[in-house]
């Protein structure tokens, strides 16, 4: 469900050239930025033909268990397992193979708005305390690169964010939306919004105020 990018090519090939390795390549998220062809070419370049398991949804523990059983005999003697998957898949496999070093061959990146369906422009960072009521339905945390809750930082130029000129300033968008809603008064409010990071740290428990 995340974007997966292959780590430094030379290093991976060097690792793949070790004799006693076993490779897992997971293509569960085959439709979401998984560099399938790149991985195949890498394996070819390293001359790895056997000792490769092409699997789906390694992140699903019951599947991973079955893959393990299937390759149990080879895995017993493997010195290391090289895994092409997102960070979740690697961790699941490492849990099943506690005695063998598991080497990730990919870095995992986050993709905006991917909450189960195709990635979206709008993103939710799961802050646990939705601010959309006061911001005209545009999220200040994800649309402002600094995640500011009390108005813009002042660094935007021509409505574009100072962090990335291709990005709209979230607070400019919010003020435009509030104007359409005739709620621009909300920008002149006296109260100060402060995030409560405890919500995240404690995994989303929210006490009744």
């Amino acid at each position: 469900m995340l974007i997966t990018k292959v780590k430094e090519r030379e290093k991976i090939i060097a690792a793949l050239r070790n004799k006693n390795i076993f490779v897992f390549k997971c293509f569960g998220c085959k439709e979401v930025y998984f560099p399938e062809e790149e991985i195949d070419s890498l394996l070819e370049e390293a001359g790895v033909k056997n000792r490769v398991a092409r699997v789906d949804y390694l992140c699903r523990e019951e599947f991973a268990e079955k893959y393990y059983k299937k390759y149990e005999n080879i895995l017993k003697d493997a010195e290391a397992v090289i895994v092409f998957s997102c960070g979740v898949g690697i961790q699941v496999l490492a849990k099943i193979l506690p005695d063998i070093p598991v080497i990730p061959a990919c870095d995992t990146h986050y993709i905006n708005g991917f909450q189960g369906l195709t990635a979206q422009d709008a993103d939710c960072q799961q802050c646990g305390e939705c601010w959309l009521n006061i911001t005209g339905g545009i999220c200040p945390i994800t649309s402002c690169s600094k995640g500011l809750l009390n108005g813009p930082c002042g660094g935007a130029k021509e409505g574009k964010c100072e962090v990335d000129k291709n990005m709209d300033c979230g607070w400019v968008l919010i003020s435009e939306r509030l104007k359409l809603l005739k709620e621009e008064g909300a920008l002149h409010k006296k109260s100060t919004n402060i995030r409560d990071y405890r919500l995240i740290i404690e995994g989303g428990k929210r006490s009744e105020e």
Binding site: I194, R195, D196, Y197, R198, I201, E202
Partner: peptide, 13 residues
């Protein structure tokens, strides 16, 4: 120490 252990548990660590 982690922020949640102090007197401002809402703070961003």
């Amino acid at each position: 120490d982690h922020t949640v252990l102090g007197d401002h548990p809402q703070a961003k660590p």
